[in-house]
């Protein structure tokens, strides 16, 4: 349906713009189009809120806040993930 709409981003384009939007780096025209999309798109509103929460939570976590077991688990997961790439 959105292909019918002139100058309005699709959900896929919104996903690509979200980081710049949250960091206040979008030019006013792009920001306006993104916000107009959010007015009617529940999915993108939910996605934006998830990213906001992730930033909030990740921003409050320090290396010291993990126990040694959690740190080891994370390092192992990261190594496994790198090994699969």
């Amino acid at each position: 349906m959105s292909s019918r709409v002139p100058d309005q981003p699709t959900c896929r384009e919104i996903v690509e713009l979200v980081t710049d939007y949250l960091e206040g780096r979008l030019p006013i025209e792009a920001r306006t189009r993104l916000e107009q999309h959010l007015v009617y798109c529940d999915w993108c509103r939910v996605y934006l809120e998830q990213i906001r929460q992730t930033i909030r939570v990740a921003g409050s976590v320090s290396e010291e806040s993990f126990g040694s077991q959690t740190r080891e688990d994370l390092v192992r997961l990261f190594r496994d993930w790198k090994g699969k790439k």
Binding site: M1, S2, R4, V5, P6, V39, Y40
Partner: peptide
């Protein structure tokens, strides 16, 4: 209501 505004506008284009 916000989505109805959008859908009606898309229908106008169609």
């Amino acid at each position: 209501a916000p989505t109805a505004s959008f859908v009606a506008s898309v229908a106008a284009v169609a």
